[in-house]
Design a protein around this nucleic acid. Structure first.
Lengths: 152, 152
DNA sequence: CCTAATCCCTACAGCCACTGTAGGTTCAAG
DNA sequence: CTTGAACCTACAGTGGCTGTAGGGATTAGG
């Protein structure tokens, strides 16, 4: 008994929107599934597995190009797994860099807010910090495939 | 002696690209500056100050709509500063949420990578985790004005 | 004064990873 | 048989820029 889910059920199974699945198909991340007589997509168990793989990788912040690479590695299971390892390590480094950067931001914001003891805008510490303080150059603070994954 | 910088010099002063400044003008974040006879933008000291304000706020991760609000607060310095404070606090909360989420990701990635002791894709721990493990639902992990600030 | 290099101008397309909308078709329940 | 939900395609919009094309302006050197 194979699954044969409609796109809506597949989306619920994967915890994403219907459009997201169609988008993955459009960019070639997922294969075009079979269609019903009425032209509606029908997903087999294998399709769902692939979709879940993508969603889990996204949940770990992997960018789509990296996921594409991981998927094609999966299709050659006899190859050594160094490549997959390397992709994960790049991802980890990106995450670590982002954490450090955000922790710096947090410190700045906390200092800003702590020192602001009410009063008028004219002596607002928040505004003052932004108006006068030079933040040290934080170039190269973003993950390689830049822009963070949006929600999920 | 006023500054009167060309857009290129202004960009260098602010550590951003020329196009970024034009973009800020286009979306109404910065006022249209004076122009030279040859129709080139000329930035006064005050314009540069405003630009630097925007860039510093961006460096702290504030989204442009929040920066717009902060800027209009600056224009009424006799108002109480609670509004500015609130914006900063929202930003801080967003940063904290993102840090926590990224720390979870880091743990997952580290575990994945540690447990992968070479071999073939077939027994690669990285692939296996993505194939089989269900990550607990991490909805609502992104900052309110979602999508992270890109570089700088 | 001329020229070449470098800047500047506008207008628009592209990036990522979706999300939303419009306008139509198909399906399942009552 | 009708209703309403779910599906279809196609395209525009999000944020915050970045890149490109096809020109005009400015400036340093010869």
């Amino acid at each position: 008994m194979s699954a044969r889910l409609t796109i809506g059920r597949a989306a619920r199974a994967a915890g994403c929107k219907v459009q997201t699945i169609r988008y993955y198909e459009q960019i070639g991340l997922l294969p075009a599934p079979a269609r019903s007589e009425g032209n509606q997509r029908l997903y087999e168990t294998e399709d769902i597995r692939r979709l879940l793989f993508v969603r889990r990788a996204r949940a770990l912040g992997f960018p789509l190009p990296a996921i594409r690479d991981l998927l094609s590695l999966c299709d050659e299971p006899e190859q050594p797994c160094e490549a997959a390892d390397a992709i994960a390590k790049v991802q980890l480094e990106g995450v670590e860099r982002r954490i450090e950067w955000l922790q710096e931001l947090r410190r700045e914001l906390e200092r800003m807010i702590e020192q602001c003891r009410g009063g008028s805008i004219a002596d607002c510490r928040v505004i003052e910090v932004l108006s006068r303080q030079a933040i040290r150059d934080t170039a190269d603070n973003e993950v390689p495939g830049r822009g963070v994954s949006s929600r999920l």
